[in-house]
Amino acid sequence: MDFQLSDDQRALRAGVRELLAGRFGRDRMRAALDAATGVDRALWRELGEAGFFALRLPEAEGGVGLGLPEAALLFEEAGRSLLPGPLIATHLVAGSVKGAARGEAVVAVLDAGQPVAHLGEADALLVLAPANAPRAPGGTLRDAAPVRDAAGPVRSADPFTPLWRVTDPVEAGEPLPGAGRLREEGALLAAAEQLGSAARTTEMAVQHAGAREQFGAPIGSFQAVKHLCAGMLVRAELARSAVYAAAVTADPVEIAGAKLLADDAAVRNARDCLQVHGGMGFTWESDVHLHLKRAWLRSGQWLTAAAAEEMLAGDLC
């Protein structure tokens, strides 16, 4: 047993972090927010070149040939950096949608009853099979345009994630080969994004608590603040163990546990980060709200807390 990152995995994580810092650092992130450009096609292609989408495709098919643990590390970095776009869906169907592997196609995901993120920019649509039909094929593919034409835009609470409400039932498209695990893998990668966000908001809170002075001392020297920060780290680290282990085992119950704990860590850490930032945390200028809004949105995607808890309860019997 060696449940720690391998040297290759560390290098991969460092490489992705560097790529995202260079290509989607804070200035560009805020510029993208102000411009409300949605998916940046040039960046999307760069992510494709870096292997973001083809990571798990076999090398013989032009992929990178890595597995879920490496994908989790990648999506953790995406979550840290607030990278927008339907990254998970595009990654999941990279082998089936032309151009997706290279970042030339954008694939949105439709989960019945949920608003569809980035539908306006999508080239293809992954239609997920209902969560309560675990043995059914995981999903089908459709052309995005006709669904978009029948959909209405939602004023999204997350400024980085345009949402569309699809009211008419969407017919299933072409079945995806070997797609039985789409929802599980999507949930795992969303959990990895939540983990990245939870770790990032912990850093932001600690940084602010160490710098901001009141009563003649850094506020991080006061236990009331210190204990909030410690609680954030504990949540993030428990989620980290859960997410990494689920990536290694790919066990559905373990994935459900990872999603549950990572959702919790991302949302509650963003809340605590906001609290540590005081009035600044309530401003548009601070990045805290961007993490919180995304974390809220992801909590409802792929696998909800209610569904995860029921799965985990069922596992006890």
Partner: peptide
């Protein structure tokens, strides 16, 4: 039931954190 499910996630994760 959901409370027990959440505890299952919690103790599974604590086991993984131990291994970590």
């Amino acid at each position: 039931r959901r409370r027990l499910g959440r505890l299952n996630a919690e103790f599974r994760a604590l086991w993984r954190l131990t291994q970590w």
